[in-house]
Design a binder for these strands. Sequence first.
DNA 1: CTGCCTGCAAACTCTTTGCACGAAT
DNA 2: ATTCGTGCAAAGAGTTTGCAGGCAG
Lengths: 154, 154
Amino acid sequence: MSLNAAREKFRHFLTRKGLRVTNQRLAIFDTAYAQREHFTAEQLLDHARKVDDSVSRATVYRTLPIMTESALLREVDIGTGEKFYLPNVGGSTTQVAQVVCLDCDKIFEISAPFMEWYGSTVSSKLGLTPVSQRLQVSAHCNAFRETGHCPRRG
Amino acid sequence: MSLNAAREKFRHFLTRKGLRVTNQRLAIFDTAYAQREHFTAEQLLDHARKVDDSVSRATVYRTLPIMTESALLREVDIGTGEKFYLPNVGGSTTQVAQVVCLDCDKIFEISAPFMEWYGSTVSSKLGLTPVSQRLQVSAHCNAFRETGHCPRRG
DNA sequence: CTGCCTGCAAACTCTTTGCACGAAT
DNA sequence: ATTCGTGCAAAGAGTTTGCAGGCAG
């Protein structure tokens, strides 16, 4: 999905929900969608301000849930206190696992289709209907252990 | 493992690490180990104070990591901002998944042995060595949807 | 024009920490 | 006697929110 197509999708989502299309929301969206790696709310704020310096922290925090609901952004909570976000270019959010490197803090997104099956199987046994599932692996970098240097961190 | 056996284990852990066996630590341990369900630091504080009213919030927060390290407690982060804890009666912490009911906020612990295999497989492909993995399913309660009432919440 | 959106700053939640006193070894 | 542990309160991090003014529809 191109940036423009995604932006249109965002506009549509806003309009359909009766939400207003503001310069700040567009700036935040464009910035978020330009990212190649996971980012935090604070990082997004920094970048968005370069596009539109009237963007405030509050609006970033208010816009992130909107973009998450519209499935344009994926929210990743790796249990570090702060949430990470990533443009949801693929689509399905229920079949992706994360591998987090404890040495370079990098987050790898990995396809894990069996996860959805597992969620359904286990939930139905409990009389529950699954909404979402997440699988996360924390790991150490072999290169770092051997050379004291993580190639991904520099 | 009985409460007494567990408490002995805790004493040993403290001594071996050169940590002191204080009344507060014992009170916190006993309280934690008496729990049948997941609990938060705050809930633990409330209960521990009934045993020893000199227990402070700071000491609870300082003792929880000690009990987690000694593998007597399991830490569960379901992404709600606060951490949950559970006596680790079983043993292995790497083969348990959680199913969280969004209606009654109950956390079910489920055996998921394949998780460890998955972590290893995926990590080695990235040149990483897995440290831990977690799998969590968020779900809605069927009974709640049908009757507007969750049997587990009351 | 109307009312949703915004920025600002204060509030909030959970957790951590500096300090001086107190207790375990 | 040492030194670690403790309670207290303040600080911290990340996020949310009340309010008065601003801009989209």
